[in-house]
Amino acid sequence: MTINEVQEEIVEEFASFDEWMDKYAYLIEIGNDLEGFKDEWRLEQNLIEGCQSKVWVYAELVDGKINYSADSDAIITKGIIALLIRVLSGRTPDEILNTELSFVEKVGLKDHLSPTRSNGLLSMMKQMRLYAVAFKAKQG
């Protein structure tokens, strides 16, 4: 699947939720299920300190593709992180840099990524992009 196909898939999943409560229940569920962030990555340099919640993000380049790992102390934040990882992880730097993350707005989570939310998500998205820029430069 392409990045955009994954985005469409998420949009369809969210379309099945009638109530906002169901949407958040789902975010809580996938937030709880998000694993794989190793303790050795839990470093100051990987921490994005939001006013409201903390976000850690780490990335590795494996066979030309970026593997993102991230974590948060707040579950809703973590649920949104899980979606971002689902869309962006395992992609090449070029794929990531050429994609607009349209699903966030389409599933009604845009608020969470606004600069006023101070939950660290916006900075995390910037950081994910920066990783892509850096890995691309490294590849030459």
């Binding site: 906002w20 409560m21 958040y24 809580i28 006013c51 409201q52 919640s53 102390d73 707040a74 579950i75 809703i76 934040t77 969470h112 939950n119």
Partner: peptide, 22 residues
């Protein structure tokens, strides 16, 4: 062990404004 941000976010959806954080 509900994070204040999570509880505050959900309450907001119910029209209830509280403060969360430090």
């Amino acid at each position: 062990d509900i994070h204040p941000f999570d509880l505050g976010t959900m309450l907001d959806k119910m029209g209830i404004a509280v403060r969360t954080g430090h």
